[in-house]
């Protein structure tokens, strides 16, 4: 299948894929905005939630923040490598980024199993419902990002479609940024 000529134009002065990923992010911001806005409204109305939030482990959360931020760094480096036309190196850095995502998820899995085994399940109360829902939606984005990243890395390895490295990078930074909001809201505010 050939690509339509439409794809090659850029009347707005920005390459189409980059434009599209920004719009995608705009639509994601309002989704997370909806969850977090609802959470904040509830939180303000229920002082007791601070007590529930005390049960979260800010150290694990901080560690995960660190992991995600480092993975963003490798995504930036991957983009730089792709700019230079070094597809191999870009691919490797993307795999490294994916690894960061995997570590993040493993830590989350560990964290959640401990919490659930202590009775803090998604149905325990509305605080925990929000906790698991917000972090769960975020984790789903991490997983999606990882899958796409592997696909992009596969082609980048062959020095093809290198512009995609930047696109997935932008997306990955966004996923990080969401976590930067989630972390203080769920773990630190007590």
């Amino acid at each position: 299948m050939s690509r339509p000529i439409a794809t090659t134009r850029s009347a707005a002065g920005m390459p189409t894929p980059r434009l599209a990923v920004w719009w995608l992010i705009a639509s994601e911001i309002v989704i997370f905005g909806g969850v977090l806005g609802s959470y904040i409204m509830h939180r303000l109305a229920h002082g007791i939630w601070a007590d529930y939030a005390a049960n979260t482990n800010p150290w694990i959360g901080a560690f995960n923040t660190f992991v995600l931020l480092s993975s963003s760094l490798s995504a930036v480096l991957a983009h730089q490598a792709a700019e230079r036309g070094d597809g191999k190196r870009a691919a490797n850095l993307l795999y490294l980024t994916t690894l960061g995502g995997a570590v993040f998820l493993c830590v989350k899995a560990f964290e959640w199993t401990t919490e659930i085994s202590h009775g803090m399940t998604i149905t325990a109360n509305t605080f925990w419902s929000f906790y698991y829902t917000a972090a769960g939606i975020h984790a789903a984005h991490v997983i999606a990002g990882m899958i796409i990243m592997v696909i992009v890395a596969q082609t980048a390895k062959k020095n093809l479609e290198l512009h995609r490295v930047e696109i997935i990078g932008i997306y990955w930074h966004f996923v990080d940024l969401v976590w930067i909001f989630l972390f203080p809201l769920l773990y630190i505010a007590k």
Partner: peptide, 17 residues
């Protein structure tokens, strides 16, 4: 549509749960 539907999508997930 894009800027208004997000919160309802979030709400839809909450409703499903």
């Amino acid at each position: 549509f894009m800027l208004s539907v997000g919160p309802l999508l979030a709400g839809g997930i909450m409703m499903l749960f």
